[in-house]
């Protein structure tokens, strides 16, 4: 009987596993293989070159810059987005003034804000990047016009044109377009935390900050953790690539002077602009290692006792 059960389960799993192997595992294996070749990506011929691509990568200053920016994103983007989202969600659900009949409630108009926060999530990332490109236009963009309107006409940064600011401009866009999703996610989580806890804490004289750190955050930890992994992967992957590629200075973005280049962008440039597909896969392997490390760390950090409620 046991035997038949496993066969039954395997029957169901075979198709998805085969698809997964074909479309996920196999391309990974292929890329790793190509990282040991000199394949240009524009002709079928290539030769094995051993670790040449890797030695080249380790002495490539642009690679290190991209890695540095990607790591910065992976550390700061989840931190920035999630703290902001937690703050908003807390204010929307628990942070409001005490009202009749309810011990805890959100700020006035919270239902409306919840919808508004979700708007950026509906826009495609390409459109968001394009819109912000207009906002950052130093000549007639919304930001500098706004600064001028409030009497700061003397302070008119070049935004994306300034190597010290450009990366933070990208950062702000990524936070802007992801924070809404987490506000909604955390709101849902907070709504399911029993109100009695808050009431008990309030009776004991706890203020909002204490209730947040002692009740809300611990009970929401699972959600925050998965949000952290999700944000990290987003910071390492497609989203940061799209915003940098569309918005920033340079033929394919990444400027000025490599101040915004990120790993996925560098992979793209090497593969599809410079005709060095093999070297691009080498950088892709580095990106894979970084991603795996990140996920491993997040999972280890998150291993703590679960609370039943």
């Amino acid at each position: 009987m046991q035997h038949g059960k496993y066969r039954f389960i395997a029957g169901f799993l075979a198709a998805p596993l085969a698809l997964y192997a074909l479309f996920v595992i196999w391309p990974f294996v292929q890329s790793i293989f190509y990282s040991f070749t000199d394949w240009s990506g524009l002709s079928p011929e290539f030769q094995l070159v051993g670790f040449d691509n890797f030695t080249k990568m380790f002495s490539d200053s642009v690679f290190w810059k991209s890695l540095q920016h990607s790591l910065l994103f992976v550390l700061l983007l989840p931190l920035g987005t999630l703290s902001l989202a937690l703050f908003f969600a807390f204010m929307l659900n628990v942070g409001g003034r005490r009202r009749k009949n309810a011990a805890v409630s959100g700020v006035r108009g919270s239902a409306f804000y919840k919808v508004v926060y979700f708007f950026p999530q509906v826009l495609s990332i390409a459109i968001v990047a394009l819109l912000f490109q207009f906002a950052y236009n130093p000549n007639s963009g919304a930001l500098n016009s706004g600064l001028q309107a409030v009497g700061l006409g003397g302070f008119q940064p070049d935004w994306l044109g300034d190597p010290d600011l450009a990366l933070w401009c990208v950062f702000a866009v990524l936070v802007w377009c992801t924070v809404g999703f987490f506000v909604v996610l955390f709101s849902a989580g907070m709504a399911s935390i029993p109100k009695d806890y808050y009431e008990a804490a309030l009776l004991d004289g706890a203020n909002r900050i204490t209730t947040f750190f002692k009740i809300t955050l611990p009970l929401l930890w699972d959600t925050v953790q998965s949000g952290w992994a999700y944000m990290g992967i987003l910071a390492l992957g497609a989203e940061s690539f799209a915003v940098v590629q569309i918005m920033t200075v340079g033929p394919n973005g990444g400027g000025p002077d490599y101040s915004t280049t990120v790993l996925p962008l560098y992979v793209y440039q090497k593969a599809f602009r410079d005709g060095q597909a093999a070297y691009a896969t080498t950088i892709g392997v580095a990106l894979l290692v970084v991603t795996l490390l990140f996920v491993a760390i997040v999972m280890r950090m998150g291993r703590r006792e679960r609370l039943e409620y």
Partner: peptide, 16 residues
């Protein structure tokens, strides 16, 4: 040089 030029793309500079 027109103020803000380093942050303009080709279309934006052409339009200015």
């Amino acid at each position: 040089i027109l103020k803000g030029t380093p942050g303009l793309d080709h279309i934006q500079s052409q339009t200015a």
